[in-house]
Simulated scan of single mutants.
Amino acid sequence: MGSLVYREELEEDKNSAFTWEVQANNKAYNRQFKQKAFLCWWRKKYKRNAIHTAKYNVFSFLPLNLYEQFHRMSNLYFLLIIVLQGIPEISTLPWFTLFAPLVCLLTIRATRDLVDDIGRHRSDRAINNRPCQILVGKSFLWRKWKNLCVGDLVCLHKDSIVPADLVLLASTEPSSLCYVETADIDGETNLKFRQAPTITHHELTNIRKMASFQGKVVCEEPNSRMHHFVGCLEWEGKKYPLDSGNILLRGCRIRNTDTCYGMVIYAGFDTKIMKNCGKIHLKRTKLDHLMNRLVVLVSFPKSLLWLRFNPWPGIFLMLQMWPKKSY
């Protein structure tokens, strides 16, 4: 069993390893990579660092929310009753006496969903507008998280939150160590240390050298394995191995380290923490599932039995509604 699991992990590593190439300080090189999105539509392979976790926008709120609400069989049942009440031959009540309560119920639920989604929009805006220092030219300038791209060099200070998945290049600590807190990722409060590759620790000693740094990281495709990373740093014709001990993940907090420098390899939804978030699905409680089953159990069998033993009223109704010729 253990050998089978190891073989599957090895095959997954072979399929995903060394297909992701990011060059430092070279946006033109990184932008040339494309990937097929749909049919003949191609898009950029590397995503920007902006994230959007909200479910709706101005145009999709009404149709999408109605689609989700009518997943409840009770709403469908009452809509069917309203349609039937609109037929004069079988109507027992004015149709608007049932339509008004249904609209009120849908409005209340839609308002609740809208308030929740506005909170997600505000949270996304606050995160995307967080400041960080990005190397522009020969100096580090303050920019927003959403403007961060793969290949950018970032300067982080003590108590800063890591804005994207970075390869640690250097720090002010001996041997370029960097201590991070991962409580926001895995809930562990004990500090972990990360270390820069030896070559970058010795060579990238000032901002001028970082501005001329043209190293390329070749690694695995973005995935959700938080504590696994395989790749290498190619620089000046040589290759240097990289592993999870050289990576700063998005969401970590820098501790006990004055300053550290990193190179962005995964941004936005390609980061490991966002890969673990998944998509927002329609939440249904056990009561919702039970109500759906009860509505189906109560309404549809009765309708089928009524038509089985009383076919003539249905035929008579169809004949009454059939359009007649006028002579």
Rank of each mutant, 00 (worst) to 15 (best):
M291C: 15
W312E: 08
V295S: 07
S299P: 00
L305C: 08
V298T: 06
G278H: 12
L294K: 03
N310H: 13
K279C: 04
W306N: 11
F300Q: 12
P311C: 10
I273A: 09
L290N: 02
R293P: 02
N276I: 04
N292S: 07
P313N: 03
P313R: 09
L304Q: 10
K286R: 11
F300K: 08
D288I: 04
D288S: 10
N276K: 14
K302E: 03
L307Q: 07
M274H: 08
R293T: 04
G278L: 13
V298L: 11
L297N: 02
V298N: 01
K283H: 15
L307F: 11
W306T: 11
M274Y: 06
K275L: 14
N292P: 04
V298C: 11
R284H: 12
V295T: 15
F309R: 03
L294E: 00
M274C: 04
V298R: 00
R308I: 03
W312R: 12
L304K: 08
V298H: 04
V296F: 11
I273L: 05
P301A: 07
L305R: 01
N292Q: 03
L304V: 15
M291R: 14
N276G: 15
K272G: 00
G278N: 05
V296M: 13
S299D: 08
L297G: 13
L290C: 06
T285S: 15
P301N: 07
L282P: 01
L307P: 05
W306D: 12
K283W: 12
P311H: 07
L282D: 04
L290M: 12
W312H: 03
R284C: 10
